[in-house]
Write a protein that binds this DNA or RNA. Structure first.
Lengths: 250, 250
DNA sequence: AGAATAGTGTCTTTCAGACACTATCAT
DNA sequence: ATGATAGTGTCTGAAAGACACTATTCT
């Protein structure tokens, strides 16, 4: 950016550049477990493995716009669904041998889907499959993450992931965990209105621990981000819980 | 990354790609204030403004390696100095109009320099200048950061920064602040051995607040990262403080 | 001795964890 | 009434803030 002498004589096409892509971690919760949407690879390289949806970055779009385009074109999101999805840049992966075909640098994004949207996308015709993510313990922090077929909950054999996508997934869950209690990312995994129990379930699923109920409620309510709707949960066979709405802190 | 049909017929040179660079925020402390090393721009575009040292990413180096190369070739670091510098990837900036000449995506890195090394690099012949960073308050979080000439401490007129480098600096100080009390980045700004007061000064400079002395000491010592050397500060006209060494937690 | 800072003892306050308790709904 | 979960009151313990105090060095 600051190489003046270099740039003055620079022919944009003259020097070889790495290719640039975005890869998206589409994360949601399925049955109380973190899950991710993956595409099966059918061709070389890494045929038979599972990959994150991604795309090359075009010259006329920003990185964020490229990520949105992947949501629309690779995952079948409608513009409205794109709008209700939390997205943030995760990290940029630039190892030399990430892809055997050529040098590709990839900007990884994390997208968080409420459970209903996750299911809807999964049922759509985009060809995405859900994989349950093993929540790593403290000791495994930083290691690649193992994912399992979402069909049977007791599956033991890990799905093979393409490229360095296991590293990307590991970073995604770590980032999510780190931001969970000081930011508002947790709400991105919940529907418009939700109960405090649902919110606690989200936190517990991502942290992989159980939380103290009174302390959790106190903290969340004291934070001032929750607005009681006055409505109650329906369809339970017991006392229905109050429904809250998340209000963005000014 | 996962566009199979596209890639099979892909000629690496056939499609236009954004250029890819790394830009480095070389940060240290000067006289109790966060400071950054900048290069003056002498040519169009943004001539007369100040820029972060950076470089294009080559095909045969990773992003981290490109950042190291900038340290060596643009900032005049010796390999030993590179080794004693903390580096981490910050964020990737991909706005369309970042650079008026062509589409350039830049991976920003944060490098932390102990005060002695900061001064040494500044005095070197790499042409870098030091600029004092205005530590933004809570209300200005996320805004571009203003920097001032380091010569006179009372300077009021902000230095003009090139490209989106004010945004990069803003993110750098925010990231540093966020990681300060749960990670060990603070030690990267200190020499090999240091006193607890120096450590507290580093934290106060970056946070822009004052801290409670007994509480700070308790927290730091309880964390188990500090090893007393047995030696004492020298050159003071009062009681010399114990010198500690940072020991990487296993 | 005096100045200046290093380093500590202790009280208070705040907040999380634990546990039991009450409240409210469907059946 | 019973079962099941929602929601709360309160005790306890850990840790931060505040403040005063002692300790140690140089001049």
């Amino acid at each position: 950016m600051t190489e003046d002498d270099f740039l003055r004589a620079y022919d944009p096409a003259a020097f070889p550049r790495p290719a640039l892509t975005v890869d998206l971690v589409l994360m949601g919760l399925r049955g109380g477990c973190p899950a991710v949407l993956l595409m099966p690879r059918t061709e070389h390289p890494h045929a038979g493995r599972w990959a994150l949806p991604g795309s090359f970055v075009r010259l006329d779009e920003t990185l964020d716009e490229a990520a949105e385009r992947v949501l629309r074109t690779k995952a079948g999101f409608t513009p409205a669904e794109v709008a209700e999805t939390h997205r943030e840049q995760l990290y940029t992966f630039g190892a030399l041998d990430r892809d055997p075909r050529m040098r590709i640098v990839s900007v990884a994004y994390l997208a968080l889907l409420p459970e209903a949207l996750f299911t809807q996308v999964l049922m759509g015709d985009a060809g995405l499959s859900a994989a349950r993510m093993a929540v790593p313990g403290e000791s495994e922090a930083g290691r690649p993450v193992a994912v399992f077929a979402a069909r049977d909950r007791a599956a033991r054999t890990a799905l093979p992931l393409a490229f360095d996508h296991a590293d990307i997934l590991a970073l995604a869950i770590l980032r999510l965990r780190g931001k969970l209690d000081y930011s508002d990312v947790g709400f991105a995994l919940l529907p418009e209105t939700f109960t405090l129990r649902q919110l606690q379930d989200v936190h517990e699923a991502i942290l992989g621990t159980t939380l103290n109920k009174p302390a959790f409620r106190r903290r969340m309510l004291d934070r001032g981000w929750l607005v009681p709707t006055g409505a109650r949960e329906t369809g339970t066979s017991f006392r229905p819980a109050e429904l809250y709405r998340y209000r963005k802190p000014l």
